[in-house]
């Protein structure tokens, strides 16, 4: 029983953390997304996104996931998927990219702290993500 309560307490702490990060993030996104800067940044990343089979609609959730991780990125992913109606193919490609390359700052730093080679980890992950997602987008053609 005590073990169960401890587990539940941990789960509640995780939930609080998720709310504290996701709510401000989604609010910030709602406030900023109409700014012309956002649109221009979208134009800038569009060619890169196309290389891995994604459209600019997926840019914000993709970059959120790359830097913040899957759990926090999911808040934005769900929101954008609803708003823009991202198709299943694009959701999968974005998921594949993020599966390989996500939360790059926190995850790599904790291994650098115990003696790992940060750039090696980062470039292998990024390279694999681009290659795999690029390949997959060519195998799975848009309907």
């Amino acid at each position: 029983m005590e073990v169960f309560l401890a587990a539940l307490w941990g789960a509640l702490k995780l939930s609080a953390k998720l709310i504290l990060i996701i709510v401000p993030l989604v609010t910030l996104f709602e406030v900023l997304r109409h700014l012309p800067v956002f649109r221009r940044a979208g134009n800038l990343v569009e060619p890169m996104m196309r290389g891995v089979g994604l459209t600019r609609d997926a840019a914000i959730p993709l970059f959120t996931g790359i830097f913040l991780g899957i759990a926090y990125g999911a808040g934005i992913i769900i929101r954008v998927a609803q708003q823009k109606g991202l198709p299943g193919r694009e959701l999968f490609l974005m998921g594949l990219f993020l599966a390989t390359c996500h939360s790059v700052i926190e995850d790599i730093l904790i291994f650098v702290v115990i003696g790992g080679n940060g750039p090696a980890i980062f470039f292998v992950r990024l390279g694999l993500a681009v290659i795999l997602t690029g390949l997959m987008s060519r195998i799975w053609k848009p309907a």
Partner: peptide
Amino acid sequence: RIRTGLSAGLATSFKIIKVSIPLYVAVTL
């Protein structure tokens, strides 16, 4: 926009939490 953001943020948070709480407890046990 702020109101939309807050309510949408809470809604998505709960969507995720509904899944993560039971899984987290199961794995911890």
